[in-house]
């Protein structure tokens, strides 16, 4: 990507708890925007996957929340904030295979305990802040 092309841009999405049919709309829109900006396909894939996993996590586990994407000439920052039950043990939640999702969610192809590790793998910087009863905040940065 050429830096002079990119002006700082902010995208905001409201995520509704339990909205499975709408899951992926935010990530899809981010993907479309980055394609239009002429970002490299590998960067777009990483941002799209990270945003999509975050979106599905909010739909599945939270009471709803917001995803904000900050696009600059250096990086893309994905900020995810939800209200909800929070994560009591973050270290456990980060382990591949650990999930508290219901059977219904698993039948839909999610809840395999791969979402948070996937998000981390897609990011150059990953930070999660949560606690029981206080919602969850995830920040991811993908360098350009």
């Amino acid at each position: 990507m050429t830096t002079e092309k990119i002006r700082p841009l902010v995208l905001e999405y409201t995520i509704v708890s339990g909205d499975f049919a709408g899951g992926g709309k935010a990530a899809s829109d981010v993907k479309r925007c980055l394609s239009q900006l002429g970002c490299q396909s590998e960067v777009i894939r990483r941002v799209a996957v990270a945003t999509y996993e975050a979106e599905m996590n909010m739909i599945i586990h939270s009471f709803g929340g917001k995803i904000t994407i900050y696009i600059s000439s250096d990086n893309i920052r994905i900020l995810c904030e939800d209200t909800g039950p929070g994560i009591p043990d973050i270290e456990l939640a980060m382990q591949e295979g650990y999930s508290t999702a219901s059977d219904k969610i698993r039948e839909m192809g999610f809840g395999a305990g791969m979402g948070l590790p996937n998000m981390k793998n897609c990011s150059d910087f990953f930070c999660i802040d949560s606690g029981e009863g206080q919602g969850t905040k995830v920040e991811m940065v993908i360098n350009l």
């Binding site: 499975f20 899951g23 992926g24 899809s28 993907k31 894939r45 996957v49 999509y52 192809g109």
Partner: peptide, 17 residues
């Protein structure tokens, strides 16, 4: 190739190119 049959299959394909 999948046995799953819902909208998220297409969304997943979209995100993963």
């Amino acid at each position: 190739v999948t046995g799953l049959n819902n909208l998220q299959v297409i969304r997943t394909a979209e995100m993963s190119d």
